[in-house]
Structure formats: C-alpha cells, structure tokens
Design a binder for these strands. Structure first.
Lengths: 118, 118
DNA sequence: TTCTTATATTCTACTATTGACATATTCCGA
DNA sequence: TCGGAATATGTCAATAGTAGAATATAAGAA
C-alpha cells in the first residue's frame, strides 16, 4: 500500500515544505500564481499544482475567474491540526509548575507498571 | 523527484494517520510495542516501523533495552509544528473582535490591490 | 547454554508524489 | 473575432512509503 494521498487532509497537504512556504507567504495577503512563483523561486506549473492540493483540502480559496487569479489562505483549515498538536502542548509548556510535573510523571509511571499493554 | 522522507521532520512523520494514533495513545502513558499493536489493531512489525520513524524525528523515546521496551511520547518534538500552525490561529480565533477583523481584511485587501505579486 | 518471549529488520509489490517540460485552457482587450 | 497573457493540465522518469509475510536479533529465565 502506498502513502496517504496529499489531498486526504491538511496533515498530508502541509507535509510538503513548498506548500508550507506558500501558505506562509499568503499570510501577508492575496497573491497570484506567478507572484508566488517569483517570490519562492518555483515554476508556474509547480505552484499551480501545489495550490490545487491546498485548495482541495480547503487551505486556500481563489478569487477571480479570469486569467488573473488571487489566492488567499484559509487558516481555519488548519484548526484540526492545531487542535491535535495542542494536546501535546503541556509537554513543553513552562507554565506547568513542579508539582504538576511530578504528579503527571507519577501517573504515567503508575499506569505503565499496572497495565503496560492494553 | 519523490515526496519528502517521512523521517525528514515532524510534519512528514505525523502525516501518517497510524502514527498520529500511536502518539495519541502514548499520551495516556508508556506502552510496549505489542500493547500498541493490540490497542490499535495493527501488526507488531507495523508498529515497530512506525515507532522507528517517530523515534528518528524525536517524537518518542524508549526505555529499557530488554525484550520488553516502553515507548514514551516526547511532545516537545511537536513544538515546531505548533508554532507554525499557530501563526494561522487568528483566522478562526473568536477572541478577535469585529473591528480587528475589519482592519485585518482591509489591510489584506489594500495589499493585494497595490502589489498583487512580489 | 538453551529456550522463549518481545521486538527489529528484510524483502516484495504496489502506488502516488515530485519536478521538468510541453501543451491546453481561459478570459480580457483590441 | 482574434491575439496574448495568466493559469491549468498532461506526460514522463525517478523515488520512496506502506502493508504483509517471513526471518533475524536480543535479553531474561531455566
């Protein structure tokens, strides 16, 4: 079996570095295909294909039907990713005090001793 | 050229749904390979390979060198992802009031009109 | 040392992605 | 209606991942 399709969800779409660069660039405002290509040093077909993927997973929207098209980022499409990643946030958060850390580690320790598998 | 390696960074490692499931499971505490396999309905080799990828990108750590090994999640490895995704958070954040939304849209609009490409 | 359990590795087949290049499509203006 | 600019799509070759099954490895116990 092969890898998950890049168009299956935001996780896969965003795994490609160039697509992340495009989204980051679009943070500054709308851009045309050639505008993106020029800024990032990519060819026009490359950008069109990347945008196609991003559009399919709802990470960008297009404005204009003419030869000139403006692409805009749709940050809301990244909310599922943000939600998932945030569940791990406590690990690096410094707002967690000593006692909380201790209790959390104790809990993890106890769990693994009692029922390592499940 | 092919897709980015799954071991190239957290983004690619986490693009695989099964690996996300494994990380989520490990949130509850340490687990053995067979424990993970049983819980998620995967084969043992599958889990070993997924864990290998996760370990290479620093998303999990191992405890024990014997036949029994306990895997633990390292949430800090997801911080770069969290940071990147958070830059788009304002899009869906409800804490942003009307005026702020208006100004932001106005700014984006003005930018695209003046210099669509760059 | 030998057996046993848990885990890691190897091999194969299939599939989808990527970049590069060429070409098709679309709409605006003359 | 026709030409041209901007964008989308198609083809090709190369590459690497995934599942599945079989097998190798490692460490503790007898």
């Amino acid at each position: 079996m092969a890898r998950s399709a890049t168009t299956s969800d935001a996780f896969n779409a965003v795994a490609e570095p160039q697509r992340r660069n495009i989204l980051t660039l679009l943070t500054k405002g709308e851009r045309t295909v050639n505008g993106i290509a020029a800024t990032l040093g990519l060819t026009q077909p490359q950008v069109s294909k990347h945008l196609s993927v991003l559009k399919q997973v709802g990470l960008v929207t297009v404005r204009g039907s003419g030869p000139q098209r403006f692409y805009k980022v749709n940050g809301a499409g990244l909310k599922p990713m943000h939600d998932w990643v945030s569940t791990f946030e406590q690990s690096w958060s410094e707002s967690m005090d000593r006692l909380e850390v201790y209790l959390k580690e104790l809990q993890a320790k106890t769990q693994s001793e009692n029922k390592p598998n499940e």
